[in-house]
């Protein structure tokens, strides 16, 4: 009994530094944001702020107007579409990478990881100027060669949504391919051999063996990606909403919308309240998804 207690103490002692770091880098900022959201910290009370209770939360509800609701719907659609395409494309590519006796497998894997190796900011701006720019972009050069009129790819809501989704896919696919590839390799070959002996075709093998086998392995990656996509800011902001480089598109995610309607005010109390509300929204989605996952098991 004594040695068990000691072992528990030891394990906490050894994981202490890591827990401290996690506490400092993850938990503390969230708690501090929650604290600031209860104060009147703004330009006029930068260092002498006081607690104002839930005032900021009451004001924050006014930001959640029709504009916010349409941004929320757009964000849900954006997340769902991104996840669907990511899963399908990553599954197809990972399956192709797992073809027996495939030559240059390592080379393909390295090439597929390239987008991950580049800083996101650089990739996004390269897409913006190199591909979508109406004057110099590759797409309009192709259009010109085909005798078609040049287009402003990022100017309308729908085309901006599609362009942002493509860039987001390009940035996110390496992670999903890597996870999917690992999951596929973990499946015991003997299942497939038995299925082949039973006369199962590719579709049946995929439905009955591959998908159930990889599901628990890719689930954490899917959850991570859902939240990364849901709270996406860089892709949408840099492609369409950047100050001084707006394109005319009205496509907003909740974060770009909150940025334009709260964060630029330099009112940290108010902005923190909005951040906490968005954080609670995300946690609620996360809890719902995780509960469903546990229920499925």
């Amino acid at each position: 009994m004594k040695s068990r207690k000691r072992a528990t103490l030891y394990s906490y002692a050894w994981s202490g530094p890591s827990l401290l770091l996690i506490g400092l880098m993850v938990v503390f900022p969230i708690l501090y944001t929650a604290y600031i959201s209860l104060t009147n910290m703004n330009v006029y009370h930068w260092f002498d702020f006081t607690i104002v209770g839930l005032d900021n939360y009451i004001r924050a509800l006014f930001v959640f107007d029709s504009g916010f609701l349409s941004a929320l719907l757009a964000t849900i659609l954006w997340t769902a579409m991104s996840m669907l395409f990511q899963l399908v494309i990553a599954f197809v590519l990972a399956s192709l990478l797992n073809i027996q006796k495939l030559r240059f497998r390592k080379l393909y894997k390295t090439v597929l990881m390239f987008p991950w190796a580049m800083p996101g900011y650089v990739s996004i701006l390269l897409w913006k100027t190199g591909i979508f720019n109406s004057q110099f972009g590759l797409l309009n050069q192709w259009m010109e060669k085909l005798g078609l009129a040049a287009a402003r790819w990022l100017a309308s809501d729908v085309s901006a949504f599609i362009c942002c989704s493509i860039v987001n896919l390009w940035l996110a696919l390496p992670f999903m391919i890597m996870i999917m590839d690992g999951a596929l390799q973990s499946i015991d070959r003997s299942y497939y051999e038995s299925a082949l002996l039973d006369g199962a075709n590719w579709l049946e093998r995929t439905r009955s063996i591959t998908v159930p086998a990889i599901r628990p392995i890719i689930a954490p990656a899917v959850i991570i990606t859902i939240f990364t996509t849901f709270k996406q800011f860089d892709v949408v902001y840099l492609l369409t909403q950047q100050a001084g480089a707006k394109t005319g598109s009205g496509f907003h995610t909740i974060l770009t919308y909150a940025y334009e309607n709260a964060f630029i005010t330099n009112n940290y109390g108010y902005s923190s309240a909005i951040s906490i509300i968005i954080f609670v929204l995300l946690i609620a989605f996360s809890a719902r998804y995780q509960l469903r996952e546990e229920g499925d098991r």
């Binding site: 100027t129 720019n133 004057q135 110099f136 402003r152 480089a245 394109t247």
Partner: peptide
């Protein structure tokens, strides 16, 4: 003028 309003496009033109 071109549809793009950002610095790089204008500058490069």
């Amino acid at each position: 003028m071109p549809g793009e309003t950002e610095y790089n496009t204008v500058n490069t033109l």
